[in-house]
């Protein structure tokens, strides 16, 4: 009965994996008094008050909007810079191309905290502190190298003869890139966008340091729930649930191509 054993094992694993998330969902549907008074596996008197507060109080929902702004800005910047770079790496030979390509990846090896201080000084010099652009730009440090790597893998999967055929057919380079090449690597572009989104969405340290009020990300706002009267558990849980949702949605869209993306397109 090997099959059953495996099934049981998987169920235990799954329960352990989902328990914290369920618990957060559970808490988000209860009032603070309820949470603190009784230990319960399900909300006895479910309420949406916590969610309503987040969606009506600007100081709360602006956090989500800010996060969305800089994340989408970052995805755009990353793709716009990584697409030409990846094309060059995949199609041309130039001096030091292999070293440069590897060096790109080493950018991801340094912890973000290392860049915190220089970034803060540079951005304040250019009056960029507390703008969405500042956060989007700082996240490029990690996302552009990754995007180049993933896209290069997908681009190298397209035979070079396609490019040559297009030149013989009479395409200009921009037109070839937009109408022939991009459709051929659209999976790669989707997966890259997903990776950029994910990293930018969960990154807290840089986002929090480079912002004060106007571009404050949701994760930073969540820390506001700590007050003299204690923690606002229910509200915090609701905000947490809402933070998971966008990521889950994006994963849903690229679920069929994720494995290839994790292999950097080299499958």
């Amino acid at each position: 009965m090997k099959f059953q054993k495996r099934t049981i094992g998987l169920i235990i694993y799954f329960v352990l994996l989902m328990l914290p998330i369920y618990w957060m969902l559970n808490m988000s549907l209860r009032t603070n008094a309820d949470i603190l008074s009784a230990f319960s596996f399900y909300p006895s008197a479910p309420t949406l008050d916590n969610y309503i507060k987040i969606f009506t109080d600007e100081s709360w929902y602006s956090g989500y909007l800010n996060s969305f702004y800089y994340v989408s800005m970052n995805v755009m910047i990353s793709l716009l810079t990584a697409l030409p770079a990846a094309y060059a790496f995949s199609r041309y030979n130039f001096l030091g191309d292999k070293h440069l390509f590897f060096w790109l990846l080493t950018n991801r090896m340094a912890p973000p905290a290392v860049f915190l201080l220089p970034f803060f000084q540079l951005y304040s010099t250019f009056n960029l502190i507390d703008t969405h652009f500042a956060v989007a730009l700082s996240h490029c440090l990690f996302n552009v190298p990754l995007a180049v790597w993933v896209l290069e893998g997908f681009m190298s999967g397209v035979p070079r003869e396609i490019d040559e055929m297009a030149y013989i057919d009479g395409y200009s380079f921009p037109r070839f890139f937009l109408t022939i090449f991009m459709p051929l690597i659209r999976t790669g572009i989707g997966v890259t966008a997903f990776f950029c989104f994910m990293f930018s969405w969960v990154e807290l340290l840089l986002a929090r340091t480079l912002t004060t009020t106007a571009a404050k990300p949701i994760a930073a706002i969540m820390t506001r729930t700590v007050s003299a009267s204690g923690l606002d558990w229910g509200l915090l849980a609701a905000a947490g649930v809402l933070t998971i949702v966008p990521g889950a949605l994006v994963i849903w869209f690229v679920r069929n191509h994720l494995a290839k993306g994790f292999a950097l397109g080299r499958v």
Partner: peptide
């Protein structure tokens, strides 16, 4: 001259058809 202006058509070993 650019490839497109040479009035030559090429057929490749791997066909190089536009898959989409």
């Amino acid at each position: 001259l650019a490839p497109k202006d040479r009035d030559a058509a090429m057929v490749f070993q791997n066909y190089a058809l536009y898959p989409h």
